[in-house]
Design a protein around this nucleic acid. Structure first.
Length: 211
DNA sequence: GTCCAGGGCCGTT
DNA sequence: AACGGCCATGGA
Protein backbone atom coordinates (compact mmCIF):
# COMPACT_ATOMS: atom_id res chain seq x y z
CA UNK A 1 0.00 0.00 0.00
CA UNK A 2 1.49 3.35 -1.05
CA UNK A 3 1.45 6.65 0.80
CA UNK A 4 -1.61 8.10 -0.90
CA UNK A 5 -3.57 4.93 -0.20
CA UNK A 6 -2.51 5.04 3.45
CA UNK A 7 -3.52 8.67 3.70
CA UNK A 8 -6.95 7.84 2.32
CA UNK A 9 -7.38 5.18 5.00
CA UNK A 10 -6.33 7.63 7.69
CA UNK A 11 -8.77 10.23 6.40
CA UNK A 12 -11.58 7.69 6.41
CA UNK A 13 -10.64 6.61 9.90
CA UNK A 14 -10.60 10.16 11.21
CA UNK A 15 -13.53 11.70 9.37
CA UNK A 16 -15.64 8.74 8.36
CA UNK A 17 -17.16 8.25 4.94
CA UNK A 18 -18.09 11.53 3.30
CA UNK A 19 -21.34 9.78 2.37
CA UNK A 20 -23.53 12.04 0.33
CA UNK A 21 -21.64 15.07 1.41
CA UNK A 22 -19.78 16.65 -1.43
CA UNK A 23 -17.62 19.62 -0.73
CA UNK A 24 -19.38 20.37 2.49
CA UNK A 25 -22.47 21.92 0.96
CA UNK A 26 -23.81 19.64 -1.70
CA UNK A 27 -24.74 16.00 -2.03
CA UNK A 28 -22.83 13.65 -4.29
CA UNK A 29 -24.31 14.61 -7.65
CA UNK A 30 -26.43 11.68 -8.75
CA UNK A 31 -29.39 12.99 -10.69
CA UNK A 32 -29.01 14.88 -13.91
CA UNK A 33 -30.25 17.99 -12.12
CA UNK A 34 -27.52 17.63 -9.49
CA UNK A 35 -24.89 17.27 -12.17
CA UNK A 36 -26.09 20.32 -14.03
CA UNK A 37 -25.98 22.30 -10.82
CA UNK A 38 -22.42 21.16 -10.26
CA UNK A 39 -21.53 22.39 -13.74
CA UNK A 40 -22.94 25.83 -12.94
CA UNK A 41 -21.17 25.75 -9.59
CA UNK A 42 -17.89 24.89 -11.26
CA UNK A 43 -17.85 28.33 -12.86
CA UNK A 44 -19.42 30.22 -9.97
CA UNK A 45 -16.97 28.86 -7.42
CA UNK A 46 -13.87 30.14 -9.15
CA UNK A 47 -11.85 31.96 -6.49
CA UNK A 48 -14.99 32.32 -4.43
CA UNK A 49 -16.22 31.02 -1.13
CA UNK A 50 -19.03 28.50 -1.06
CA UNK A 51 -21.47 30.58 0.88
CA UNK A 52 -21.51 33.10 -1.95
CA UNK A 53 -21.84 30.38 -4.56
CA UNK A 54 -24.80 28.89 -2.70
CA UNK A 55 -26.56 32.23 -2.70
CA UNK A 56 -26.05 32.55 -6.44
CA UNK A 57 -27.29 29.01 -7.15
CA UNK A 58 -30.23 29.63 -4.87
CA UNK A 59 -31.13 32.78 -6.76
CA UNK A 60 -31.05 30.90 -10.06
CA UNK A 61 -33.18 28.14 -8.62
CA UNK A 62 -35.77 30.51 -7.20
CA UNK A 63 -35.95 32.23 -10.57
CA UNK A 64 -36.80 28.88 -12.13
CA UNK A 65 -33.42 28.53 -13.82
CA UNK A 66 -32.58 24.94 -12.99
CA UNK A 67 -31.02 23.38 -16.06
CA UNK A 68 -28.31 24.22 -18.55
CA UNK A 69 -31.01 24.60 -21.17
CA UNK A 70 -32.74 27.15 -18.97
CA UNK A 71 -29.59 29.22 -18.99
CA UNK A 72 -28.98 28.77 -22.71
CA UNK A 73 -32.50 30.01 -23.31
CA UNK A 74 -31.61 33.32 -21.68
CA UNK A 75 -29.07 34.21 -24.35
CA UNK A 76 -30.88 37.52 -24.91
CA UNK A 77 -31.26 38.26 -21.21
CA UNK A 78 -27.79 37.79 -19.86
CA UNK A 79 -28.27 40.76 -17.57
CA UNK A 80 -30.93 38.79 -15.72
CA UNK A 81 -28.51 35.94 -15.12
CA UNK A 82 -25.77 38.38 -14.15
CA UNK A 83 -27.94 39.92 -11.47
CA UNK A 84 -28.91 36.55 -10.05
CA UNK A 85 -25.32 35.33 -9.75
CA UNK A 86 -24.01 38.58 -8.30
CA UNK A 87 -23.37 37.10 -4.85
CA UNK A 88 -20.75 34.77 -6.32
CA UNK A 89 -18.55 37.74 -7.23
CA UNK A 90 -16.77 38.56 -10.53
CA UNK A 91 -20.30 38.35 -11.83
CA UNK A 92 -19.80 40.02 -15.19
CA UNK A 93 -16.93 37.71 -16.12
CA UNK A 94 -18.69 34.69 -14.72
CA UNK A 95 -21.82 35.42 -16.73
CA UNK A 96 -19.76 35.29 -19.92
CA UNK A 97 -17.96 32.14 -18.82
CA UNK A 98 -21.22 30.48 -17.83
CA UNK A 99 -22.81 31.10 -21.21
CA UNK A 100 -19.65 30.00 -23.02
CA UNK A 101 -19.71 26.70 -21.16
CA UNK A 102 -23.45 26.11 -21.32
CA UNK A 103 -23.58 26.89 -25.04
CA UNK A 104 -20.79 24.40 -25.65
CA UNK A 105 -22.41 21.66 -23.57
CA UNK A 106 -25.93 22.13 -24.86
CA UNK A 107 -24.69 22.13 -28.43
CA UNK A 108 -22.45 19.07 -28.11
CA UNK A 109 -23.25 17.10 -24.99
CA UNK A 110 -26.86 17.77 -24.18
CA UNK A 111 -27.51 14.23 -23.01
CA UNK A 112 -24.16 13.88 -21.31
CA UNK A 113 -25.37 10.95 -19.26
CA UNK A 114 -25.78 8.84 -22.37
CA UNK A 115 -22.66 9.69 -24.30
CA UNK A 116 -19.95 7.17 -25.05
CA UNK A 117 -17.68 7.32 -22.06
CA UNK A 118 -14.97 5.19 -23.64
CA UNK A 119 -13.71 8.09 -25.67
CA UNK A 120 -13.73 11.09 -23.39
CA UNK A 121 -10.10 12.10 -23.60
CA UNK A 122 -10.69 14.77 -26.24
CA UNK A 123 -13.47 16.25 -24.14
CA UNK A 124 -11.05 17.67 -21.57
CA UNK A 125 -9.18 19.49 -24.31
CA UNK A 126 -12.42 20.80 -25.76
CA UNK A 127 -13.63 21.98 -22.36
CA UNK A 128 -10.37 23.80 -21.73
CA UNK A 129 -10.77 25.60 -25.03
CA UNK A 130 -13.99 27.14 -23.72
CA UNK A 131 -13.08 30.62 -22.50
CA UNK A 132 -13.46 30.60 -18.75
CA UNK A 133 -12.80 26.90 -18.31
CA UNK A 134 -9.32 25.97 -17.14
CA UNK A 135 -7.89 22.68 -15.95
CA UNK A 136 -9.58 22.62 -12.60
CA UNK A 137 -13.02 23.59 -13.85
CA UNK A 138 -12.77 21.07 -16.68
CA UNK A 139 -11.69 18.30 -14.32
CA UNK A 140 -14.45 19.09 -11.83
CA UNK A 141 -16.98 18.75 -14.63
CA UNK A 142 -15.39 15.48 -15.80
CA UNK A 143 -15.33 14.02 -12.29
CA UNK A 144 -18.74 15.10 -11.02
CA UNK A 145 -20.90 15.37 -14.13
CA UNK A 146 -19.27 12.89 -16.50
CA UNK A 147 -18.18 10.60 -13.69
CA UNK A 148 -14.67 10.13 -15.01
CA UNK A 149 -11.77 9.11 -12.73
CA UNK A 150 -10.05 12.49 -12.96
CA UNK A 151 -8.45 13.91 -9.83
CA UNK A 152 -9.26 17.57 -9.28
CA UNK A 153 -6.35 19.69 -8.09
CA UNK A 154 -7.45 22.80 -6.25
CA UNK A 155 -6.12 24.99 -3.44
CA UNK A 156 -7.29 22.51 -0.84
CA UNK A 157 -5.49 19.66 -2.58
CA UNK A 158 -2.34 21.76 -2.86
CA UNK A 159 -2.38 22.82 0.78
CA UNK A 160 -3.06 19.26 1.81
CA UNK A 161 -0.21 17.93 -0.32
CA UNK A 162 2.17 20.47 1.20
CA UNK A 163 1.03 19.85 4.75
CA UNK A 164 1.32 16.09 4.36
CA UNK A 165 4.58 16.43 2.46
CA UNK A 166 3.23 14.21 -0.27
CA UNK A 167 5.67 15.66 -2.80
CA UNK A 168 7.88 18.68 -3.36
CA UNK A 169 6.46 19.65 -6.72
CA UNK A 170 3.02 21.22 -6.77
CA UNK A 171 2.21 21.94 -10.37
CA UNK A 172 -1.24 20.88 -11.51
CA UNK A 173 0.07 18.19 -13.84
CA UNK A 174 2.46 16.71 -11.34
CA UNK A 175 -0.04 16.47 -8.50
CA UNK A 176 -2.76 15.10 -10.74
CA UNK A 177 -0.50 12.43 -12.22
CA UNK A 178 0.60 11.49 -8.73
CA UNK A 179 -2.93 10.92 -7.46
CA UNK A 180 -4.07 9.23 -10.64
CA UNK A 181 -1.21 6.76 -10.72
CA UNK A 182 -1.16 5.96 -7.00
CA UNK A 183 -4.89 5.80 -6.35
CA UNK A 184 -7.12 3.26 -8.07
CA UNK A 185 -8.96 4.82 -10.99
CA UNK A 186 -12.49 4.97 -9.65
CA UNK A 187 -14.52 8.13 -9.95
CA UNK A 188 -16.40 7.47 -6.73
CA UNK A 189 -13.13 7.01 -4.87
CA UNK A 190 -11.77 10.24 -6.37
CA UNK A 191 -14.92 12.09 -5.36
CA UNK A 192 -14.68 10.74 -1.82
CA UNK A 193 -10.95 11.34 -1.56
CA UNK A 194 -11.36 14.92 -2.61
CA UNK A 195 -14.27 15.49 -0.26
CA UNK A 196 -12.14 14.15 2.58
CA UNK A 197 -9.25 16.41 1.68
CA UNK A 198 -11.59 19.40 1.88
CA UNK A 199 -13.00 18.24 5.21
CA UNK A 200 -9.51 17.63 6.58
CA UNK A 201 -8.22 21.03 5.47
CA UNK A 202 -11.22 22.79 6.94
CA UNK A 203 -10.65 21.01 10.24
CA UNK A 204 -7.00 21.94 10.14
CA UNK A 205 -7.73 25.59 9.34
CA UNK A 206 -10.12 25.75 12.29
CA UNK A 207 -7.58 24.17 14.62
CA UNK A 208 -5.01 26.78 13.60
CA UNK A 209 -7.35 29.67 14.21
CA UNK A 210 -6.26 30.26 17.78
CA UNK A 211 -2.56 29.57 17.33
C1' DG B 1 -12.27 48.85 7.85
C1' DT B 2 -9.55 44.83 6.27
C1' DC B 3 -8.85 40.43 4.57
C1' DC B 4 -9.79 36.60 1.90
C1' DA B 5 -12.17 32.69 -0.61
C1' DG B 6 -11.85 25.50 -4.18
C1' DG B 7 -9.62 30.19 -11.13
C1' DG B 8 -8.67 31.89 -15.33
C1' DC B 9 -7.41 35.38 -18.63
C1' DC B 10 -4.33 38.64 -20.34
C1' DG B 11 -0.34 41.45 -20.82
C1' DT B 12 4.48 41.83 -19.69
C1' DT B 13 9.05 39.90 -18.93
C1' DA C 1 7.52 29.42 -19.06
C1' DA C 2 6.57 32.46 -15.25
C1' DC C 3 4.63 36.23 -12.97
C1' DG C 4 1.33 40.10 -11.64
C1' DG C 5 -2.91 42.59 -12.15
C1' DC C 6 -7.47 42.02 -12.63
C1' DC C 7 -12.27 40.55 -11.91
C1' DA C 8 -16.47 41.61 -7.14
C1' DT C 9 -19.26 39.83 -3.41
C1' DG C 10 -20.33 38.59 1.43
C1' DG C 11 -18.78 36.79 5.81
C1' DA C 12 -15.36 36.65 9.56
Amino acid sequence: MNKLQKIYRELRKRHGHPKDQWLHWCKRPKSKADKERVIMGAILTQQTNWNNVCQALDNLNKAGIKTLKDIAALEKEKRKVANLIKPSGFYKTKTKYLFNLVDFLVANYEDFEKIDKSNLLPLREKLIKVKGVGKETADAILLYAFEQPVFVIDQYTRRFAKRKKITNKFSYEHLQTLFQTKVKKDYRLYQDYHALIVIAEQHYAKSQLYN
